[in-house]
């Protein structure tokens, strides 16, 4: 695993951001936690990475990170893709914090579009990278109007969208960024996680923080908070099901990625959560393709 870098790079403040910026983000975070699911505007800074690569998540992580934190970063469940590797290296260099790929060892987990398969614990913070924080944005492009809709808890348009899915496809066809209602009030975009992960947000022991850098919004779900996926009585919310287990570790209750293995149509389905898959294989579980 990546060795612990104990001495941060010189020339930068701890965790890159200056203290005034951290205070501004920290104030936004406290209000976000006090109003679950509500998007708090914040003055997002330019970060040394392009928008869309997790500038919001990185700023939230930088604002909460302490010397004793252990950081894990995942991109679509994987610890070893470019985005995850570079953000992990960024904080190892600018903050000197310990990093890990093991979900249970981490105190702060920054994620792009997955929630780890292993259950999260009370001491952990999950930081989501969010591209479009406004769940109503594709229904109403004007920020002034969506803000009013949230103020009035007027979420009819979202139910109409889900209903149109049913009218057109016979079922709710939204499979990711599936809207949720937080603590019975605000409708929130869970970021483009597969809807498979939505049930993990409900009554989760860990604190969940969301950062959208380009859109300059922070929001939060406190631990043990009701997170309900929107649905209808006759079309209840359902997660995806896979007709085969993971080819490497044999897990049948996880979210799978399709991996092409050659140019002749060969493919295998494997855990999207690489740490979960590795841990299972270390414990002796084997899939058909292993």
């Amino acid at each position: 695993m990546t060795p612990r870098v104990r001495v941060p790079e010189t020339g930068y403040n701890f965790a890159y951001l200056d203290e005034a910026t951290k205070r501004m983000i920290r104030r936004a975070l406290l209000k976000a936690v006090a109003i679950p699911g509500y998007q708090v505007p914040f003055a997002a800074r330019e970060m040394p990475m392009p928008y869309g690569w997790g500038t919001g998540g990185v700023q939230v992580t930088a604002a909460i990170l302490g010397r004793n934190d252990v950081l894990k970063v995942i991109d679509q469940g994987s610890d070893d893709t470019t985005n995850a590797v570079s953000i992990r290296a960024f904080f190892a260099r600018t903050a000197g914090v310990a990093v890990t790929t093991r979900t249970r060892d981490a105190t702060v987990i920054q994620t792009r579009h997955r929630i780890p398969e292993a259950p999260l614990a009370e001491g952990q913070v999950l930081v989501y990278q969010v591209p479009i924080p406004e769940p109503l944005r594709f229904l109403e492009p004007r920020e002034t109007e969506t803000r009013q809709l949230h103020a009035l808890a007027e979420y009819g348009p979202m139910h109409v969208k889900l209903y149109e899915d049913i009218a057109r496809h016979g079922h709710i066809a939204t499979t990711y960024a599936y809207p949720v209602e937080v603590a019975g009030r605000y409708v929130m975009d869970p970021s483009p996680t597969p809807k498979f992960d939505n049930p993990k947000m409900d009554d989760c022991p860990a604190l969940q923080l969301f950062g959208a850098g380009r859109e300059k919004r922070i929001y939060a779900v406190p631990p043990y908070t009701r997170v309900r996926s929107l649905d209808f009585e006759d079309h209840p919310f359902r997660v995806q099901h896979f007709d085969r287990p993971c080819a490497l570790c044999g897990a049948g209750d996880v979210y799978l990625d399709e991996v092409l293995t050659d140019d002749a149509g060969g493919r295998m389905f494997v855990c999207s959560d690489t740490d979960h898959c590795e841990a299972r294989r270390e414990a002796g579980h084997r899939g058909e393709g292993a």
Partner: peptide, 16 residues
Amino acid sequence: VHDAQGAFRAMLDALA
């Protein structure tokens, strides 16, 4: 830097 971070995390945990 670190005293402010420690105080903030205590407050974040307190409100969360």
